[in-house]
């Protein structure tokens, strides 16, 4: 049975699309048949992050409106077997999405896939609510910063009230916290919320911690999800995150300041 997972945050620019791309890639690399759907109608970007922007022909709205079949719109990832991308429309507005249409697309995808990742747009409007409505699990992406934490709390409120599981009073959505752009140096100097602070305030299960990393921009520049950069801290942190999502017990990494050795202090060893 396919699992539907929404990647959401409320606030924009915290790393939803980066995380959706990285986690989907990680799941597919472990042999799980995965599709990642861009729900940001009008402002699609998942295609760029996944590096398939020039292969987009049809999109989610075309499928919902019956202008294309699902198989015509699904883009097969070039690098990983078992990974597919369903892009958002660039020209339509968000009203083109309907709850019935989304339900139909998800039902069809469920027959074929192990994991369906829904990359939510920022905000709490229609697009974001539709991305979360049918979810079984939610990954709440949060930066160690006041507005992001507050918005994440708002999103947790919506997950508990405006979703199918909430309306049908079935088992509630499983909520996971993913902290991104974490900078242990700034945490140590007292100028950034600690991981424990965020966990205490939001009080949900921690799925992963992604350090602020140069590898993330490098990955998006190239259109290669950062999970492929296995030598980077962010790539490894996303890989750990995927393991935890699959139920493995992984110790936390990258949350403490690295002690710099004498050589790197003298020569200013670059961070990967």
């Amino acid at each position: 049975m396919a699992k539907i997972i929404v990647v959401t945050s409320g606030k924009g620019g915290v790393g939803k699309t980066t995380s959706a791309a990285a986690i989907s890639t990680g799941l597919a690399l472990r042999g799980k048949k995965t599709v990642v759907i861009d729900f940001d109608v009008g402002l699609r970007n998942l295609d760029l992050i996944m590096g398939c922007e020039r292969r987009v022909v049809y999109d989610l709205v075309n499928v919902i409106q019956g202008e294309a079949g699902l198989n015509q719109a699904l883009i097969r990832d070039k690098r990983v077997e078992n990974l597919f991308i369903l892009p958002a429309s660039q020209t339509r507005d968000k009203d083109a999405l309907t709850q019935e249409g989304v339900a139909e697309v998800l039902d069809k995808l469920k027959e074929d896939f192990d994991y369906i990742m829904c990359d939510s747009p920022a905000g709490i409007e229609r697009g974001a609510q539709l991305a979360m409505y049918f979810a079984d699990e939610a990954i709440v992406v949060t930066n160690p910063e006041v507005s992001s934490v507050r918005d994440s709390d708002r999103i947790l409120g919506l997950l508990a009230s405006k979703t199918r599981r909430a309306e049908e009073s079935s088992d509630p959505i499983k909520e996971h916290l993913l902290v991104t752009r974490y900078n242990p140096e700034r945490v140590t100097s007292g100028d950034m919320l600690t991981l424990d602070d965020i966990r205490e305030i939001l009080a949900i299960n921690l799925l992963g911690l992604i350090p602020e990393s140069e590898a993330v921009l490098r990955a998006s520049n190239q259109g290669v999800p950062v999970t492929h950069d296995i030598s980077s801290d962010a790539g490894q942190a996303y890989s750990d995150t995927v393991s935890r999502l699959l139920g493995e017990d992984m110790p936390l990494r990258f949350h403490e300041m690295q002690r710099k050795g004498l050589l790197s202090r003298m020569f200013g060893g670059g961070r990967r």
């Binding site: 910063e145 006041v146 934490v149 507050r150 709390d153 945490v187 100097s189 007292g190 100028d191 950034m192 919320l193 600690t194 602070d197 305030i201 939001l202």
Partner: peptide, 15 residues
């Protein structure tokens, strides 16, 4: 007072 602890206090109240 470190700015992070100010942030935490403000968040606890608003949340």
């Amino acid at each position: 007072k470190k700015s992070a602890s100010v942030a935490k206090e403000r968040l606890q109240i608003i949340v």
